[in-house]
Simulated assay, not measured.
Amino acid sequence: MNKGICDKIKFMLWGMTSRLKENKDFINDVTFKFKSGTKNYIGIIYIDDEKVNFNGKDEELKIDDIPSYISEHALKYDELEFVINERGKKFILNADNKNVKTKQVDSREEKSDEHAFTKSTLLNRNYLIRVGEADELLKEIGILTKDGKVKNDMIRKYNQIDHFVELVDSMIDELGDVDTINVLDCACGKSYLTFVLNYYIKEVKKKNCFFIGIDRSENVINTSREIAKRLNYKNMQFLCMDLNEYIPDRRIDIVISLHACDIATDMALGTAINVNARAIMCVPCCHRELLDQYRFDEFNSVLKHGVFRARFSDILTDGVRALLLETQGYKVSVVEYISPLETPKNLLIRAVKVSDKNIKAINEYKALKEKFNITPYLERYINI
């Protein structure tokens, strides 16, 4: 290629490589291919290792040196294709002796949209996390078989995961004023929701994101780290520790928690309050704390039956959680996450920060606390 074209390549690569610095955690690979006659010469740039492999030879190559390196080599060839393969999209530069062009391609558009399983037989819904587009992710978390079929015993789990994404979608849109959405998963377990949200926010919503998963089990944390490595999700951190010991090193935008047992849910909500999270998505699990605490003499004739007493304790526990979030300026809604036919633990507490302390809610909570003679665990995180 002539010098004028090569100078243009160098100029356009400066813009493309600046993206490599800004989105380093989301880069899968950087490749280039020179063509001379019918022969191709292929190279790979390893961003993390700051090196390039071209024609079987390794050399040191920093990001800032990429434009000069490529443009100088281009003088010897007829054509160039330079590709930045970022999660969710590709940035491609094509050049020959006549012109230099760039284009952006949605990676999902390159994958087939056609698949035998595109709708749930249970919910008859279109999926946000779609088979055919998210196969690598869905295989890694056990939803798909190796040949890309949804496992029969994972259909319900697939529906649950996708519905959670649907419920959190509006919260993601409301955080459009931040460059990177930071998500904290409390008592993350195997982190399936975290991996799914990571995929959705970055590759579907096209927003940068960072995830922190916390759990006390070293086994599940190690498993999560291995999955992240296999998926090449570099924008994730997994910590084996007690939630009460966590001190964030960055702003936290969304806190999620799915089926954290008993007061672990309160620890998750308390952590969200302490880090001043702008949004919370929490699906509680079992309820034990208030069962032996509360007293309601007016209902003794009903609550003498153990099953009624336990069910009332469940309602009281989650109702108090919602009210305590309101005292801290959150707008709270409680919805059914999934059908009660699938699990009785199906409530989702959604909260969005809208103000400072809510005095009316504080007074309501104090009256409720006195009436039922309770001291909820969540209160220790809050200055009432």
Score class of each variant (00 low, 15 high):
25 D>C: 03
42 I>K: 14
220 V>D: 08
236 M>F: 06
373 N>I: 09
342 E>C: 00
216 R>F: 11
172 I>A: 07
281 M>W: 06
239 L>Q: 13
153 D>E: 15
45 I>W: 06
21 K>N: 14
159 N>G: 14
159 N>S: 12
18 S>Q: 10
238 F>T: 01
290 L>I: 03
377 Y>T: 12
57 K>G: 02
167 L>I: 07
107 S>A: 09
237 Q>Y: 08
244 N>H: 01
164 F>K: 13
327 T>V: 01
350 R>N: 02
358 N>I: 11
77 Y>E: 10
368 L>S: 07
361 A>K: 11
138 L>D: 14
100 V>L: 00
184 L>H: 08
204 V>N: 08
268 A>F: 01
211 F>V: 15
35 K>Q: 12
296 F>M: 09
358 N>G: 10
86 E>L: 09
365 Y>R: 09
16 M>W: 04
48 D>C: 09
87 R>W: 09
268 A>S: 11
185 D>W: 09
106 D>V: 05
357 K>F: 07
366 K>G: 08
113 D>H: 06
300 N>V: 04
214 I>Y: 01
25 D>N: 15
365 Y>S: 04
316 L>S: 01
276 N>L: 14
297 D>M: 03
352 V>D: 00
194 T>W: 03
188 C>H: 11
383 N>K: 15
270 G>C: 10
256 I>P: 11
212 I>W: 08
262 D>A: 01
31 T>V: 08
146 K>H: 15
376 P>E: 05
92 I>M: 04
252 I>T: 11
115 H>Q: 12
267 M>N: 09
136 E>W: 02
183 V>R: 07
20 L>T: 02
254 I>Y: 08
203 E>Q: 14
381 Y>S: 06
59 E>K: 03
379 E>R: 05
283 V>C: 05
134 A>K: 11
71 S>F: 01
324 L>F: 10
255 V>R: 05
294 Y>L: 11
265 T>W: 04
124 N>K: 15
353 K>Q: 04
283 V>H: 00
197 L>C: 08
169 D>I: 10
203 E>P: 13
81 E>Y: 02
308 F>K: 00
379 E>I: 04
191 S>R: 07
358 N>P: 08
63 I>E: 06
8 K>C: 03
127 Y>C: 06
143 I>W: 10
19 R>D: 04
148 G>T: 10
115 H>M: 12
379 E>G: 06
377 Y>I: 08
328 Q>A: 01
305 H>G: 00
153 D>S: 09
17 T>Q: 05
6 C>T: 14
96 D>T: 09
32 F>N: 03
50 E>F: 10
11 F>E: 14
246 Y>I: 04
158 Y>D: 04
156 R>G: 09
66 I>G: 02
348 L>H: 04
153 D>V: 12
71 S>I: 07
222 N>Y: 09
317 T>F: 01
266 D>P: 01
261 C>A: 13
163 H>T: 14
358 N>E: 05
259 H>K: 12
57 K>E: 13
31 T>E: 01
375 T>F: 12
61 L>R: 11
379 E>N: 07
312 F>T: 00
162 D>S: 14
255 V>H: 00
266 D>C: 05
11 F>R: 12
125 R>N: 14
287 H>D: 00
110 E>H: 03
236 M>I: 11
177 D>K: 13
